[in-house]
Design a protein around this nucleic acid. Sequence first.
DNA 1: ATGTAATTTTACCAACTGGTTAAACTAATT
DNA 2: AATTAGTTTAACCAGTTGGTAAAATTACAT
Lengths: 203, 203
Amino acid sequence: MSDEDISTEKVILEAAKKVFLDKGFDGARMQQIADEAGINKALLHYYFRSKDKLFDAIFEDAFMQFLPNISQIMVSDMEFSEKIRAFVGHYIDMLLNNPHLPIFIMRELQRNPEKIIEMMKKVGINPGSLASYLQKETEEGGVATIPMVHLIVNMIGLCVFPFIGRPIIEGFIFNNNTEAYNKFLVERKTMVADFVINAIQIK
Amino acid sequence: MSDEDISTEKVILEAAKKVFLDKGFDGARMQQIADEAGINKALLHYYFRSKDKLFDAIFEDAFMQFLPNISQIMVSDMEFSEKIRAFVGHYIDMLLNNPHLPIFIMRELQRNPEKIIEMMKKVGINPGSLASYLQKETEEGGVATIPMVHLIVNMIGLCVFPFIGRPIIEGFIFNNNTEAYNKFLVERKTMVADFVINAIQIK
DNA sequence: ATGTAATTTTACCAACTGGTTAAACTAATT
DNA sequence: AATTAGTTTAACCAGTTGGTAAAATTACAT
């Protein structure tokens, strides 16, 4: 019982994640999720009573996965530039494994912005305290005095944007050459790090 | 006839733009667009035969508006750093006037990536030639040898991302303080320009 | 063997949605 | 007065969608 139970639940969650991430809540169909999971619609409602409940389960997981664990790296004892290199590398790697994550999160948060409050409670991190910690470190370390909030947004944006803007970049810049686009994404692991490190160096 | 005709069509288009940009194609309802326009559903179909046709009219406009006219500025005779400052300033200004544009474009292009081909035909620009033009200019001008494709994506990403990620930035970083978030956006006009210029300077 | 939970099958429902139709009304044109 | 295009009203339709109900089946555990 328990074995099958868990595995079926996981199969459903995986199928739901796939469909929801691709189509969004409004575009997703319960039937499609059932098909993807290899079960029928009735069983879907047997495990998760409603589309909303199923979606919530997916979204919470996805949001946690999307949240860069920036603190963990940034509070280590590396050189500041090495911290940036480590963060960018890890974060882009995660996005390469979950390319649909960013647009999904953004799309659904725009559909229901109040959700952000719910999420803030479930996550313990406090971006404010991290920012002031880093602000101090950079000021002491001969790094340009860019407000830390901007630096954090810049870093995340540089990592995330190429995934959100995939159709435009792949289609417009790379003439629909998927291979070139993927190579471009991998290149960015070093390219973005160099870019950021250079940007905050005092001349 | 012609007078009323044009004005009603515009009213519908404005209403449709508002609803589509906010809800996306899947989330938008024809009834809601009719209400927003202050007319009834029948008249909506009288002017635009179907939801798809109405959406296409909106999307094409929105896409053109979103496309940064990067070439125009970049081929002028300014200093390279001034070009960057001008581009970032103009582009962020446009986004401040159309804050929902980025997430709308990204969402709908993900829903129907083939659309990018249709759009490429309607737009004359060729990002490839611009990139090689700029590449030459920077190499001659003592600027760091960052591949121009990365530089362009970086610039656009730095401008666009704060608008796409609004709920996260406003909610998570600014504790839902909308005023602080807006101030942050305006700051970025100089902040992003400085950041990019610094990043590509050779030390 | 018996009971129990998981699963399928099938049929079904109510609400919603895009879209249509036709008749009537309005206001400006001729 | 007659015409015409724009617009409203209101009813309606067919397809889709989330969700339910119930009976039958499967598989496992006691």
